[in-house]
């Protein structure tokens, strides 16, 4: 028996979890019959199938390990970029939170600044420069050229 593929176990687990979550939520909707399918019918069936695939992936990994096949590797190795990743995600989320109440300019400045900070070798000053530059570029493209009616600043509404 060789080492179990941690990737396969995790992937199978994720699919199993999603499958169960969808199937269980579907159970709260009307399932109906084949003639008059309710809103829960299709997602319920698909949720069960997805769970089954999740189990299949886990079992295949276990079988492989038992038979002594080497574990298959994922597509990439290397560490997870926790800080940089968090900055990128925070940039997207903050843009979403800020754009409606505060307008495009503040939302873009914050989002591009945070995203730029995540770059390798970008100093806070550099990030600020990138942020201002990109904000201007975006405003020119979307608001000036494309005429999108998006408020630039808080409208006070």
């Amino acid at each position: 028996m060789s080492r179990l593929s941690r990737d396969d176990l995790l992937a199978g687990g994720i699919f199993l979890a999603f499958g169960l979550a969808f199937a269980l939520t579907s159970a709260t909707y009307d399932i109906g019959s084949l003639l008059r399918m309710g809103p829960g019918y299709f997602p319920m069936v698909l949720g069960i199938i997805l769970s089954a695939f999740g189990v299949a992936i886990i079992l295949t990994a276990v079988l492989k390990a038992v038979r002594g096949h080497p574990a298959t590797a994922g597509l990439d190795e290397g560490g997870i970029p926790w800080v940089r990743g968090a900055l990128v995600l925070a940039a997207i989320m903050l843009f979403g939170f800020m754009v409606a109440p505060l307008g495009l300019v503040p939302a873009l400045l914050v989002a591009t600044f945070l995203a730029a900070l995540a770059g390798h070798g970008t100093s806070p000053l550099g990030a600020a420069v990138i942020s201002v530059g990109l904000t201007v570029l975006c405003i020119v493209i979307f608001v000036v050229i494309l005429q999108l009616k998006l408020p630039l600043f808080p409208t006070g509404g």
Binding site: L102, V105, V110, T155
Partner: peptide, 21 residues
């Protein structure tokens, strides 16, 4: 600290924005 600085900028921008309407 950076975030705090930005918040100040945001407030300042908010002020000029609403001042115009």
């Amino acid at each position: 600290r950076r975030a705090a600085g930005l918040a100040t900028v945001g407030v300042a921008l908010a002020a000029c924005g609403s001042g115009g309407t």
